[in-house]
Design a protein around this nucleic acid. Structure first.
Length: 505
RNA sequence: GGCGUGUUGGUCAAUCGGUUAAGACGCCUCCCUUUCACGGAGGAAUGACGGGUUCGACUCCCGUACAUGCUACCA
């Protein structure tokens, strides 16, 4: 049987790290087994719908290089791939469940539900459920006479369909990561299957669509584990048990400090991105920073995510997507949650930057430089040279400006004191003389500059070390950057002399 | 509260009953570099706790603790 997996996000906002990792594991598993990877949009909650979120999700997948074989956009053999567009289909299945006695109709209003919860709330039961006990006290097709039910439905009274959870059954499932897990059915509530607006809840939709779309393996976050028995029972009640996908519940990605699920808030608070790409929320008008805009290479981002909760058991940690496809296995996914470590994420990106060809890197860095320069008249050949000189010290694409701005614009001298404090006549003489020597220098390159500098320093009774630091401050503005003569070579004669003159005048 | 899941250095983690308990990030020291990085060499730092099972337990079992998830007509 052909492996088919799916990523089923709800379009409610930015795509979280954990979401991307779920996509990744789906993708790797599918490719590893030569199967299909499906994108299905779970937009059954009309209240939470956010304009643009679906497109954003697809853009993120594209950026990461994890494109689905079937999706709302691409289509496929099981169209439509948007649950809102599949709405009519779910009702039949809900009715089938009612007819076979596995589900029932409930008329309770939100107020009545709340009243029930308030009434039965105890210290040892802080959250009463709509379950095998309380359903006998509520207004539903189990407690009301058939005629009354028919009448209420006839009159258009809003109702939901709930699953009728059995009592005292043990529901077990085998999770690819965790092994066998079992639940006591008496402790699971009668989940709503079909909402009053006719839309299915996740519980019904996920089962129906996984069945219809012939999904063989279903991967999702650990937060779904508690409702897994509902899904297993539904597969059974629909008569599809032998087609039920194999489950794998992925561990959570935790916040770096303290404990708990990593949230967008943590990123804002700790200064790192949580979403894959910038997310503009049309409701609040706020933009949340993404890994892409923060200066991550998609390959590095994906590599880092692969290693967060999964490990191949070898010492190597840098893998291309293709390599990951080869060695990935669900059994090697960790059971426990992993705290996100932004320093390590930056390390991955640094590694990828070092391994990227300078010409390719220059193209990637260009927008960041142009943005800082305003309308930059920067040529790519120069940028390529600069990138080669400073890539060592860049962890993010955004670091290139910080580390190399002085190649493109005359820097502000921030550490003038370093020069001034040890300034003397000899140095004054050296730099003024050197300026005129540089004017005459025909071979403007690193070695010629260095030779010229050394020679004159000796003549002036100075050591090389006496002039190097002042020269660096003149050219760079601070105590950092690659070799000074390499810098001078790139910025050219005119600019070099200008910067020396600016300080020595 | 109930139920589920989890727990190896600060973090990510290897180990699948026998090891001096890998490796990486971060941190510290030194070297290289007349800057900052990169790189190189070292270093500190780990099996939550208590019981079993076993010749032997990080590994298997049971408790305890802690953490986390869920307990919506949200996913």
């Amino acid at each position: 049987m052909k492996v088919r997996v799916r990523f089923a996000p709800s379009p409610t906002g930015g795509l979280h790290l954990g979401g991307v990792r779920t996509v990744l594991y789906n993708y790797l598993f599918a490719r590893h087994h030569g199967g299909d990877f499906v994108l299905r949009i779970e937009d059954t909650d009309q209240n939470r719908f956010v304009e643009g979120a679906e497109q954003y999700i697809m853009d993120c997948l594209k950026w990461c290089g994890l494109e689905p074989d079937e999706s709302p956009l691409k289509g496929g053999p099981y169209t439509p791939y948007r649950q809102s567009e599949r709405k009519p289909l779910y009702k039949d299945y809900a009715e089938q469940l009612i007819d076979s006695g596995y589900a029932y109709i409930a008329f309770d209003t939100p107020e009545e539900l709340e009243k029930m919860r308030a009434e039965y709330r105890r210290d040892d039961n802080t959250n009463p459920q709509y379950d095998h006990f309380t359903r006998g006290l509520m207004r539903n097709s189990l407690t009301l006479p058939a005629e009354t039910v028919a009448e209420l439905v006839e009159k258009g009274t809003p109702y939901v369909v709930r699953i009728k959870m059995p009592e005292n059954e043990t529901v077990t499932l085998t999770d690819m990561i965790r092994g066998e897990i079992s639940f006591d059915s008496s402790l699971v509530d009668d989940k709503v299957l079909l909402k009053a607006d006719g839309m299915p809840t996740y519980h019904l939709a996920v089962v129906v669509d996984d069945y219809l779309m012939k999904i063989t393996h279903a991967f999702r976050g650990e937060e779904w584990l508690p409702s897994a028995p509902v899904h297993v029972l539904l597969w059974q009640y629909m008569g599809w048990k032998e087609h039920m996908p194999q489950w794998a519940h992925l561990p959570l990605i935790l916040k770096p400090d303290g404990n708990g699920k990593l949230s967008k808030r943590d990123g804002d608070r700790l200064g790192f991105p949580v979403f894959a790409m910038n997310w503009f929320d049309p409701k609040t008008g706020e933009t949340t920073k993404g890994f892409r805009e923060m200066g991550f290479l998609p390959q590095a981002f994906v590599n880092m995510l692969a290693m967060l909760g999964w490990n191949p058991g070898v010492e190597k940690e840098l893998f291309s997507l293709d390599e990951l496809v080869q060695i990935f296995s669900m059994e090697r996914v960790h059971k426990g949650g992993a705290k996100f470590n932004f320093e390590k994420a930056k390390w991955f990106n640094h590694q990828y930057i070092q391994h990227t060809d300078n010409a390719v890197l220059a193209e990637m860095v260009k927008p960041y430089i142009v943005k800082e320069l305003g309308d930059g008249n920067m040529e790519i050949g120069k940028l390529e040279k600069v990138v080669g000189l400073i890539k060592d010290r860049c962890h993010l694409l955004t670091d290139f400006w910080e580390q190399g701005h002085f190649f493109f614009a005359t820097p502000e001298i921030k550490e003038l004191a370093v020069i001034k404090d040890k300034w003397n006549d000899q140095k004054q003489q050296f730099f003024t003389t050197w300026q005129s020597k540089l004017e005459l220098l025909t071979d403007w390159n690193h070695d010629a500059l260095e030779a010229s500098c050394n020679e004159l320093a000796v003549e002036c009774g100075l050591k090389k070390g006496d002039v190097m630091l002042p020269l660096r401050i003149m050219l760079v503005g601070g105590k950092y950057g690659p070799g000074v003569f390499a810098i001078a070579e790139v910025i050219g004669k005119e600019e070099t002399i200008k910067r020396i003159k600016f300080v020595t005048r």
